[in-house]
Design a protein around this nucleic acid. Structure first.
Length: 270
DNA sequence: CGGCATGTTGCGCA
DNA sequence: TTGCGCAACATGCC
């Protein structure tokens, strides 16, 4: 469930469910998801507090509560928040639960995460992971100028740079793969070798991909053009999509549309 | 059974 | 010191 757009959807529903509500009880027993805090510390920090708002930067959520407390939530690969009835039986993938009261009505929210790559952190100040995040396209904006600056300072593969959360926050494998296909840029192209025209194409492609996911969620999966389509044909030119591994992550590309730019010195293989 | 997965971190080796 | 590949983390699905 975990890229900028998915996390933004979770933020919106959390805001709807939590804003103005008071946390009356906390059930949290999964030490792994709460790491390194103990469940007791976590419960104690949250109990009795009222939710003021829910923010997001990149793939991190920050629930603001009174008394200057913040609940940070990262969904990892399979995390999600869901509404349930107070006292509902625990689900196998349930890692934490907050019982809430708002205007006399009692509800509960549970954090579900079968794979447990996610994290929950209650803290009185910002956490390092949050502070290290780069610009978030939706909350901070994303322009040709800002992306050019961020790409120019790295010679790593452009796809890895786009997914570097300290450079640009929220871009994951889906958005990076989609955007580079739309922009017709080879994922292994050196970040700082891109021309102004190419950077502009990536900015536009990122917005196209983000907008498409925002609009189509959650059925939009089938509308993806490159991600998850290795072995099928490129909707633009018909050539079979190739699959490579870049930075340890599966990367799908069209070798015709996304051919490496020719370099006199003989540039990258892929 | 093996392979793969929307994420992050840490280790060992250039 | 920096950068990169790779394994690990824990679990489900095909």
């Amino acid at each position: 469930m975990p890229e900028l757009v998915d996390v933004e959807m979770v933020r919106r529903k959390l805001l709807r469910w939590m804003k103005g509500a008071r946390v009356v009880a906390v059930h949290a027993t999964d030490r792994y998801v709460l790491r390194p805090a103990s469940p007791a510390t976590f419960r104690h920090a949250l109990a009795g507090r009222t939710v003021r708002g829910v923010e997001r930067r990149g793939k991190w959520l920050r629930v603001e509560l009174d008394g200057d407390l913040r609940l940070f939530s990262h969904l990892g690969m399979t995390g999600d928040w869901a509404l349930c009835a107070v006292g509902a039986p625990r689900m196998p993938s349930e890692r934490a639960r907050l019982d809430l009261v708002r205007g006399g009505a009692a509800t509960a929210l549970r954090y579900l995460d079968p794979r447990r790559f996610g994290r929950l952190v209650a803290a009185r100040r910002e956490i390092p992971e949050w502070c290290a995040l780069g610009q978030d396209p939706l909350t901070d904006g994303l322009t040709e100028r800002s992306l050019r600056r961020s790409l120019a300072t790295s010679h790593r593969a452009v796809k890895e740079r786009l997914m570097d959360q300290t450079a640009l926050a929220g871009i994951g494998n889906v958005l990076a793969t989609e955007a580079l296909w739309i922009a017709r840029i080879h994922p292994r192209a050196r970040s700082n070798s891109l021309t102004a025209v190419e950077v502009r194409a990536i900015v536009r492609a990122l917005w196209t991909a983000i907008r498409r996911e925002l609009r189509d969620k959650p059925e939009g999966v089938e509308r993806r053009r490159a991600y998850g389509r290795a072995g099928r044909s490129c909707p633009r030119c018909g050539k079979t999509f190739a699959r490579i591994v870049l930075g340890g992550r599966t990367t799908v590309l069209c070798r015709r549309c996304q051919a490496p730019r020719h370099s006199a010195r003989g540039a990258g293989r892929a």
